[in-house]
């Protein structure tokens, strides 16, 4: 399944790439893509939506408290 989120509060594409790398390492995440310009986060995973949202939100918080994630 593909899950789409809106991601705000990232400073630059460099940071976006770093967060992308962190999310990719988490369990159950098949692929992850952050588009810095359109502020879009796309995750592919077999897990259910609640789990994915939780993983993604927690990782983002760990990365920087400024980053905000909302379900699209």
């Amino acid at each position: 399944m593909k899950f789409k989120y809106e991601i705000t509060g990232l400073d630059c594409p460099n940071c976006a790439a770093k967060l992308e790398g962190m999310i990719a390492k988490k369990d159950g995440i098949d692929s992850v893509k952050i588009n810095f310009i359109t502020e879009r986060l796309t995750v592919e995973s077999e897990a259910d939506e609640a789990t994915v949202t939780d993983t993604v939100t927690k990782t983002a918080q760990e990365f920087s408290p400024k980053v905000n994630i909302a379900k699209k």
């Binding site: 630059c12 594409p13 460099n14 810095f36 310009i37 359109t38």
Partner: peptide, 14 residues
């Protein structure tokens, strides 16, 4: 920090 580049170039294209 390569910020000016990593932001402005994709932004130009977009």
């Amino acid at each position: 920090c390569p910020c000016a580049l990593v932001i402005s170039v994709p932004l130009s294209f977009f």
